[in-house]
Computed example of a mutant assay.
Amino acid sequence: MSTAAPGWYAEPDNPAMLRWFDGVQWTEHRQPAMVGGPFPPARPSRSPAATVLLVVGCVVAAVVAVGVLAAIAIPVFLNERHKAAVDDLRSLSCAEVGAEAVTFSRQNVKPDEIPLAAADAMVLVTDARAALRLPQTGEVLVMRCSGTATWADQTTTALQVDLYTNSAGDHLYALDWRE
């Protein structure tokens, strides 16, 4: 007499098939065996410590990735900014330097001074543009132009405009005139 409970059991001759045992005898009912059963195996759950480690690891990886990108991007950005500033300074003409000097004079005139109204016939006297590099500190001469100044009171004088730049690529002017 059998003590096996009724149910599906693997066939000894063909483990890919299941056969029904009714508790007394084997029946002719067969079906394919499912590997792992009808449901996928349950994933073991993570412990809270493992979850915390996973999150911390992801955060550290993200910070490292941002740091690497910044280490690459910042020097490239600064170099491009440097090149753009130098290219801007190299492309200036003395006529443009004179026009900027007029604007500079109007914006920086003291109450007891007469602003520059026009800078005409500006010609290049000193040119340091070919070897120009933005300085780490201080200022460096870019070019010197001379011409004729017309002041707001309609007087005219000889004019010399020195264009300097600093590490940021700013245009800085020094004006010198003789009556």
Rank of each mutant, 00 (worst) to 15 (best):
T126K: 09
E100A: 08
R81A: 07
C58P: 09
F104E: 04
V63T: 11
M17P: 02
G98V: 01
T126Y: 04
Q107G: 05
V102W: 01
M1R: 08
G7A: 07
W151P: 03
S105D: 06
V60P: 11
E179C: 03
L175N: 03
Q107F: 03
E100L: 12
R90W: 06
A117I: 04
P41N: 06
Q107N: 11
A49L: 12
A5Y: 00
A49S: 13
I74C: 07
A49G: 09
P15M: 04
L116H: 02
A4P: 01
V56Y: 13
M17N: 12
Q160M: 14
T157N: 13
T157Y: 12
W151T: 07
M34R: 08
S45R: 11
C58G: 15
H171V: 06
G36Y: 11
A70L: 09
A84D: 00
P15S: 04
L54Q: 13
A71S: 14
R133K: 13
A117Q: 06
A168W: 03
V63W: 15
V97S: 00
M122H: 10
V123A: 13
G67N: 09
D120Q: 13
V56L: 15
S45A: 14
A130F: 10
Y173G: 04
A152S: 14
A61E: 05
V66I: 12
S146G: 15
T103V: 14
V123H: 13
A73D: 09
V35R: 07
I72G: 12
D87P: 00
A4D: 07
A42H: 09
S105R: 00
T137F: 05
R19Q: 06
L172G: 05
G23W: 04
W8Q: 01
A49V: 15
D22W: 01
R43M: 06
A85I: 00
V125H: 07
P44F: 08
P135I: 01
D127E: 04
T126C: 10
C94L: 02
E11N: 05
T51D: 14
V55L: 15
S167Y: 01
V24Y: 02
V142Q: 03
A85G: 00
T165G: 03
A33C: 05
T137C: 08
C58N: 14
E179V: 05
V161G: 01
A99S: 04
L18V: 02
A84L: 02
T156W: 06
V161R: 00
P115L: 12
G36E: 15
T103E: 08
A84C: 04
M143T: 15
L89W: 00
V56K: 14
W177A: 09
L78Q: 08
T157G: 15
V66W: 03
P48D: 12
A62Y: 11
F21K: 02
E139P: 02
H82T: 10
A49T: 14
A95Y: 05
E80P: 06
A84P: 04
V24R: 05
I74H: 09
E179R: 07
A49W: 12
V66S: 03
V125C: 02
V86P: 07
R178A: 07
P38F: 15
P12L: 06
S105I: 00
R178S: 08
T156R: 14
V66H: 03
V109W: 05
V109T: 13
